[in-house]
């Protein structure tokens, strides 16, 4: 219930109007949204019970490792049941396959649709979505870890919350199924990071400083 309460209000996209090139405009709008989502995500992380008690080094490495996974949980959740298989990056930024392809994001589209279908088939509850998002952040394989015991405790508490929730609704297999969906999330986030790094490196799409810093940490 704490995670449900701290879930941030979805952001709206600010339409970029610096260029007449439609695809570039889409990309710039998307990257601006992503940068602002990151800011919100960092504020959100601090409110997850146990996160602020971690050392600064561990907080940084968890965020540097799990930020894209946590953000994509939101995109996949919002995109469920969309007509035309659009991806809902924001209420006012919905991209279909053709738009993504034109913007050079065909690979990202395919990966994110796959994740969205998976979540849709699992019929996730809002409680499961917020817990999955927090677990994506906690489940980093980042190395070295400053204080492994504290990170472990942070993970255990989220796991315990999920188990308690699933037991309360007599779903004995759900917690395991959700954990088993984390590899697909990691894989999707890796593809997303690659897509944005390529935009920056090969097509010279300018990125905001925070987004660039977080992408660089993954490069």
């Amino acid at each position: 219930s704490h995670l449900l309460l701290t879930e941030p209000t979805p952001l709206a996209a600010n339409q970029d109007d610096s260029t007449n090139d439609g695809s570039l405009r889409t990309l710039l709008t998307l990257c601006d949204l992503l940068n602002r989502e990151l800011l919100v995500l960092i504020g959100w992380a601090k409110q997850i019970p146990g996160f602020s008690g971690l050392s600064l080094v561990d907080q940084m490495s968890l965020l540097q490792s799990g930020w894209m996974e946590a953000l994509l949980v939101g995109v996949a959740w919002r995109s469920q049941g969309m007509p035309g298989e659009e991806l809902v990056f924001a209420g006012n930024l919905r991209l279909d396959e053709a738009q993504c392809r034109a913007a050079g994001l065909a690979d990202l589209y395919e990966a994110l649709r796959h994740l969205t279908s998976k979540y849709q088939a699992m019929n996730l509850t809002p409680e499961e979505v917020v817990t999955l998002k927090a677990m994506a952040l906690a489940n980093s394989d980042a190395d070295p870890v400053d204080c492994p015991d504290s990170v472990q405790r942070f993970q255990d508490e989220l796991h315990e919350a999920l188990q308690e929730y699933e037991l309360s609704r007599r779903e004995q297999h759900r917690a395991g199924r959700l954990l088993m969906s984390l590899p697909l999330l990691r894989q999707t986030a890796d593809r997303a990071v690659q897509a944005f790094l390529q935009l920056h490196r090969h097509r010279c799409v300018p990125l905001h400083k925070l987004l660039l810093e977080m992408l660089d940490a993954k490069a």
Partner: peptide
């Protein structure tokens, strides 16, 4: 740490 300046600053700021 210099490389991750913004994240470092954002985490140090109080909520």
């Amino acid at each position: 740490k210099e490389k991750h300046k913004i994240l470092h600053q954002l985490l140090q700021n109080s909520t």
